[in-house]
Design a protein around this nucleic acid. Structure first.
Lengths: 317, 317
DNA sequence: ATGAAAGCGCTAACAT
DNA sequence: ATGTTAGCGCTTTCAT
C-alpha cells in the first residue's frame, strides 16, 4: 500500500482509486486512528486553508459578533480562522500580523483599528488583506463596512421626528469605529432640519467612556433632550449615568445607539439602535479575501444599516 | 551562507555563530523580508507552539473573557491559541477537536460543555487536555474550575443576611455551567438557615432564558423577595422581565448573580455578583496543559469565587 | 565557526 | 490502478 494511494483516498483525488482499496484504506485510517498532518500538507501545497483575523478587545460584543460571523462564513468555504486579539495599538497589530504571516495564512482580516499607514507595514506584504468596518477606500485596499453616515443620519432624523430639537452626540476618539462618518451624519441631519448643532462628548469606545460622556453632557442644566450614541458599549454606560442622575429614558432623554448588538435588546429601557449587518458583512469579507487570494478584483459597496425601533427613542413604552 | 547558520541565528542556537555573520544574517533577513515558515518548523520539530481552544458561543461575555485571558496567558508562555467556536453539541465539539488535532496542536483546552463521555472521543487521544470550568474530577482528566458550590452558598447567605426568607433560583439546564453545584449551594444555604426551599426556574443559559425564568417566577402573586441567578446572561434577562412587570430592584426583588462579567457593573441597578477568577484560572489552565504535555502531573484545587457587592442585593443605593 | 545533508509527512508528477 | 520518488522549508547531526 503506497502513501500516494492513501493521499488519493483522503483527498478524493486527483487520481481514482479502486473501491476495494479505498475501503481498505478507510478502514486502516479508522483502526489506526490516523490523522493527516496539516503542517506537512501546508508545507507541500503552500496553502493552509486558514485565514488570520486580528481584532482588538474580543470582549466587546461587536467584535465578538464579528469573530463568530467570520468563523462561520469561513467554515462554509472550508477555511479556519486563526484569531489574534490585538491590544489595538499599531505595535501589537504588527506583532499579530507577523505571527500570522509566519503561519502561512492564506488571507488576512483586520479591523479598522488598523489605521491606513499601518497597512503598508512590511509584515503583510503579499498577504491578501481585507479591512473590516472601515470606510476610507484607499487604492489597493479592500474594505467591507457599514454606511455609518447614513446610519447616523437616519438615527438623528428619527429623533427629530419625535420632536427633539437639540440632539447631543457621544462618540469615541481615535480610530475605533469610523468616528468622522458618524459625526458628520449626526451633524448633517440636524442642520438639514434647520436645527442647531448639539453638544458633543468625546470619550473612549467603552462602557466607562459612555458613562463619562453621559455624566458630562447631562450634569449641565441645559442638557439636550435626545442623544445619538456612536456605539452600544457607550450607550450602556450612558444608561448607567442617566440612572445615577435620576433622568428617565425616554421621557427626559431619548437615545439611539449605533451597532445593534444583542445587549441593546435587554437593557431597561431597551435601546433603539442602528444595527450593523455583521453576518452579511462577514460573508462578504470572506468572499472578498478569497477573491483577492485568487487575484480576482471585486467591488464592495458599503452595507446599509438598519434602524431597530425599541423603547429608548420613545417609540414603545 | 548555509541554511544551518540562518537557523542558528533565528533560534539563538543550538550552536554559536560569529557576531559578524550573525549581523550579516540579520541584515539579510530584514532586506529580503524573510519570514520563517512555521509549517516547516512544525513538521521538523513536531511541536507547533499552539494550543487549541474549543468554546461554545464566544459572544457570551463569560466565554469571551476566557478566550482573552487564555490567549494572554498562552502568549506569555510563547504559545498561540487556535480558537474554534463550537455549537455546543457533541458532534460540533468532535469536529472542532479533530480539526485541531490535524493541526498538531500541543495541547487542548475545552469548555465544560464537553460532557465527560465525549472526552473519551478518539479524536483527542494523545493530546494533553484540560477541561475548563468543570468540577467533576474524573481519573485522567485535569480540570480547572471555580468552587461554584461555595459561591452559590455565599450568595444566598448574603441575601438571607439582608432579611430575605424565601429565595428563588434561576438556573440553566444541561451542561452549560455546573448546574448541580450551584443548585446544591443555593439549597444548602437556605436549609442551613432553617428556611424553606425557594422556587426554581430552569431555563437556557441566556438572556432570553433569564427573561423567561423571571416572567414565570415573578408573575405569581406569591413571588420570592430575592433570587439567585446562576449566570450573568440570565440576570440581564431577569432584569428586563422585572422591568416589564413593574417590580423594583432591590426594593421588591433582590438579586445576586453568578459569573461577575463586566456587564454586571453597568446595569441599572448594578448587579451584585459572585465573580469567577477567570484570569487566574486561565493562567493555571495554560500551565496545566503545558505540564501535561511535559508528562508532569499536577493538582488543581477549585478556585474560590469572590462576592462583589453592588446595588441589586440591597447593599448600595 | 560554518557547511553538507538527512529527514519530518505530505502531494503530485512520473513510472509501471 | 497502484507504486516510486522528489521536494516543500526547516532543524540538527555530522563532517570539516
Amino acid at each position: 500500500m503506497s502513501s500516494a494511494v492513501v493521499s488519493y483516498v483522503v483527498n478524493g483525488g486527483p487520481r481514482a482509486v479502486a473501491p476495494a482499496t479505498a475501503k481498505r484504506v478507510a478502514d486502516a485510517i479508522r483502526t489506526l486512528g490516523y490523522r493527516p498532518n496539516l503542517s506537512a500538507r501546508a508545507l507541500r501545497t503552500g496553502t493552509t486553508k486558514t485565514l488570520g483575523l486580528v481584532l482588538p478587545e474580543i470582549n466587546n460584543p461587536l467584535y465578538a459578533a464579528w469573530a463568530v460571523a467570520l468563523e462561520v462564513a469561513a467554515a462554509e468555504r472550508g477555511y479556519m480562522v486563526l484569531l489574534i486579539n490585538s491590544d489595538g495599538d499599531p505595535e501589537s497589530d504588527h506583532r499579530a500580523i507577523t505571527h500570522l504571516a509566519e503561519r502561512q495564512i492564506d488571507g488576512l482580516l483586520v479591523t479598522s483599528s488598523m489605521a491606513r499607514p499601518d497597512l503598508a507595514v512590511p509584515s503583510l506584504q503579499g498577504i491578501p488583506t481585507v479591512v473590516l468596518g472601515v470606510l476610507e477606500k484607499g487604492p489597493g485596499t479592500v474594505s467591507i463596512g457599514v454606511d455609518a453616515y447614513a446610519g447616523a443620519y437616519e438615527a438623528v432624523t428619527h429623533l427629530i421626528g419625535h420632536g427633539h430639537a437639540r440632539i447631543g452626540l457621544i462618540i469615541g476618539g481615535g480610530s475605533g469605529g469610523n468616528p468622522e462618518l458618524r459625526e458628520s451624519g449626526w451633524l448633517a441631519a440636524s442642520r438639514d432640519a434647520g436645527l442647531p448643532d448639539g453638544p458633543i462628548a468625546r470619550e473612549p469606545w467603552s462602557r466607562a467612556g459612555g458613562y463619562e460622556g453621559g455624566m458630562r453632557l447631562f450634569s449641565s442644566v441645559n442638557y439636550p433632550s435626545a442623544v445619538f450614541v456612536s456605539s452600544d458599549m457607550q450607550a450602556l454606560g450612558l444608561l448607567r449615568a442617566l440612572h445615577e442622575l435620576g433622568l428617565r429614558v425616554p421621557d427626559d432623554v431619548a437615545i439611539v445607539s449605533f451597532d445593534g448588538t444583542e445587549d441593546t435588546e435587554y437593557t431597561s429601557p431597551s435601546l433603539t439602535a442602528v444595527q450593523q449587518p455583521v453576518k452579511a458583512m462577514a460573508v462578504e469579507a470572506v468572499t472578498a479575501v478569497l477573491d483577492l487570494a485568487a487575484s480576482r478584483q471585486t467591488e464592495h459597496p458599503l452595507h446599509p444599516p438598519k434602524l431597530i425601533l425599541r423603547e429608548s427613542c420613545g417609540c414603545e413604552h
